[in-house]
Each structure stands twice: as C-alpha cells, then as structure tokens.
C-alpha cells in the first residue's frame, strides 16, 4: 500500500507493508535516517517522533495510521527555533548524548520547550523520561528538561545534589 503523509514539511508517498510500523517505514524510506529502532516495543523511546504535534514511539504506530498525518523527525526539528534552545539547555546542563538517543531526547525536549506554557514540570519530566538510554548522566537531561519547562535556575540548583 502507499501512504501519503507529510514528513518534515514535505509531502511524501511511502510504500508500506500492512504490518509495518511507522518507525520502519521512516527508516527504510530514508525520511528519518537519525531515528533509532531499538526495543521495538515502545519501551526505550529512541524511535520518538512528533506525530501531528505529539511525541509518540513510532515503533508502536502502524504505518497506515500515519496516513494524512504530519510527522516531524529530528531532521525536521533541527531547523526549528526550539532546536537551538534545546542544544543550549543540553550544553548548559553538561549532557553528552549518544547518537542513539540524542534525536529522541532532542524532540522530547523541543516539545517541552514549545509547550512550556501549558505543561508543568511533572509532565515535562514524564515526557523526557519516556526515553531510556544508559549513555549519559541522567541528571543532566533532567536539568535540561526543567530549564526548558521554565523552572527558575535557582530552584533547579537547590534541588540537585552537588
């Protein structure tokens, strides 16, 4: 079958098997080369994309469900103004991410930055916690999430052990 969808602002027609997941289709079509398919069960979050503006584990989304939808992957995210904010927050927090999780964390943090007016700190933490990777200091990622969610810097400093 052929699926029409918008990926990173471009109209795309992608061939897909009935049982294929969105993650597989995006990788195979090279529409999202940075995407990592790891656990394949929605557990690790490394396949995170924005589907119609919401972060989803693309390995859990049947490809046909994305018909007519808009998908933003890391490649598309990097051209947004939130990308610079996310990069700055990660750098300020000292987070060094691996190539397997950086796209997913960046998208999750970008979503937090874009929606900081309506989501609180707890929800921000839950969103960024949907990605699990063992590559880096987790407290640095949490600090970046709190900064992007709008928590004042002195509150973050007093919360964290040093």
């Amino acid at each position: 079958m052929t699926i029409d969808l918008i990926v990173n602002g471009e109209d795309m027609k992608i061939r897909a098997e009935p049982a294929e997941r969105l993650a597989e289709v995006l990788r195979r079509s090279r529409a999202a080369p940075s995407l990592t398919i790891d656990c394949g069960g929605g557990f690790c979050g490394k396949c995170l994309v924005l589907l119609d503006g919401k972060p989803v584990a693309s390995c859990l989304v049947p490809a046909f469900r994305a018909r007519g939808s808009e998908v933003v992957s890391y490649e598309g995210f990097m051209s947004t103004q939130e990308a610079a904010q996310v990069e700055a927050a990660l750098t300020a927090a000292g987070a060094r991410l691996c190539p397997f999780c950086k796209p997913a964390y960046s998208l999750a943090l970008g979503f937090i930055a874009e929606n900081r007016a309506r989501i609180g700190e707890d929800e921000a933490l839950a969103i960024v916690s949907s990605v699990r990777c063992t590559c880096s200091d987790p407290s640095a990622v949490v600090e970046a999430a709190r900064a992007l969610a709008g928590e004042p810097g002195d509150q973050r400093a007093s919360r964290a052990h040093r």
Binding site: D38, C39, G41, G42, S129, S130, R132, P138, S139, A160
Partner: peptide, 18 residues
C-alpha cells in the same frame, strides 16, 4: 523476557546523586 519487562529505571525514577 523482553526489553519492556527488563526494568531499566526511568529518568524520573532515579534518585538525586551527589
């Protein structure tokens, strides 16, 4: 078992560490 059943802690489950 699967990755989902493995039990790796989430970021929001990890304790503060000094």
């Amino acid at each position: 078992g699967t990755a989902a059943s493995y039990g790796l802690l989430r970021l929001d489950e990890l304790p503060p560490t000094a």
